[in-house]
């Protein structure tokens, strides 16, 4: 049984069959079945709203054709009807993200969505990561509201990069990433780094098709940042605590940062790094390569 959701059995994600535990570990969205029917057992006295299921037409005011659009109409009564949708608001985004995920799986490429506040050192960390990955195939999608500065910095390392400017947008969405992926040479067994817009709020809700969200938090931002912005750190699989070389100068309590990270996400992995001094960078690279190997093995198996 999965320790996260309590479900047993497997889930199908695309053409991949995983256990629930694996799906949670990988942060992949998947369904949770129940063993009961969805009968509406709520107390009608407590609500003043209408229901869309098998009620007789009500007299006076609105009627709804209980069984949805296919229901019968009553001549002379209001033509309004109730359509049950039960669709996620971001269902379009999620569908495109699923396609991105399939493309990446077919390639055996591992994609990370790097999320953080502005100024946490994402781009510097990414440049250093690319430098240390050497000749390993990789590509980068850079998201910012304006300018191509970050993509320019990435290209200066020799890596392929596409800049996505979101204009007024505060996050990347799956469609932007799909288009950027089309414009990039993605090699089998490579890494795709997606540097999201610097924002700890909005990108949490938008699935891009990545394998993992990586939250970057620098030591100058305050130990309580995970508590202030819990959604992002809950969605992330790993947190990189960056600029640790500055910790002694800022009186930063690194242990407290980790405690707060685990307070909002007991499953989160944490690595302390400094892109500038190189501290922790080998651990981060090991993590990336291990996840890529996991994915390749799953594809082969």
């Amino acid at each position: 049984m999965c320790t996260v959701c309590g479900c047993s059995g497997t889930v199908k994600i695309g053409d991949l069959e995983l256990t629930h535990e694996e799906a949670h570990q990988l942060g992949l969205p998947h369904g949770h079945d129940h063993d009961h029917d969805h009968v509406h057992a709520h107390d009608h006295g407590a609500h003043d709203h209408d229901h869309g299921h098998a009620h007789p037409p009500l007299s006076g005011g609105t009627i709804h054709f209980g069984l949805g659009v296919a229901g019968t109409s009553v001549p002379g009564m209001s033509q309004s009807r109730l359509i049950e949708i039960e669709t996620g608001i971001l269902s379009k985004n999620d569908a495109i993200a699923a396609t991105n995920r399939r493309v990446l799986r077919a390639l055996g490429a591992f994609a990370v969505n790097l999320v953080s506040s502005p100024g946490s050192g994402k781009t510097t960390l990414l440049c250093e990561t690319i430098r240390r990955l050497g000749s390993h195939p990789l590509a980068v999608i850079e998201g910012d509201q304006q300018t191509s500065n970050d993509a320019d910095r990435i290209r200066a390392t020799g890596a392929d990069a596409v800049q996505v400017n979101t204009g007024k947008g505060c996050h990347l969405d799956a469609d932007m990433v799909a288009r950027a992926m089309d414009a990039l040479p993605l090699a089998p067994g490579g890494f795709l780094f997606i540097e999201n817009v610097g924002n700890l709020v909005c990108p949490a809700a938008f699935d891009l098709g990545e394998d993992a969200k990586v939250a970057i938090l620098s030591v100058t931002e305050g130990e309580d940042k995970p508590l202030k912005y819990p959604d992002m750190f809950t969605a992330a699989r790993i947190a990189l605590v960056n600029k640790v070389d500055l910790a002694p100068h800022c009186d930063t309590d690194l242990d407290l940062i980790e405690t707060n990270l685990r307070r909002v996400n007991p499953m989160i992995e944490v690595i302390r790094v400094s892109a500038r001094t190189g501290e922790g960078m080998e651990d981060w690279l090991r993590w990336l390569k291990a996840r890529l190997t996991d994915k390749t093995l799953r594809k082969a198996g």
Partner: peptide, 14 residues
């Protein structure tokens, strides 16, 4: 475990 839902439940249309 849940509580992050953002769903359109239903709509009344004419």
């Amino acid at each position: 475990q849940g509580g992050d839902e953002m769903r359109i439940k239903d709509m009344e249309v004419v």
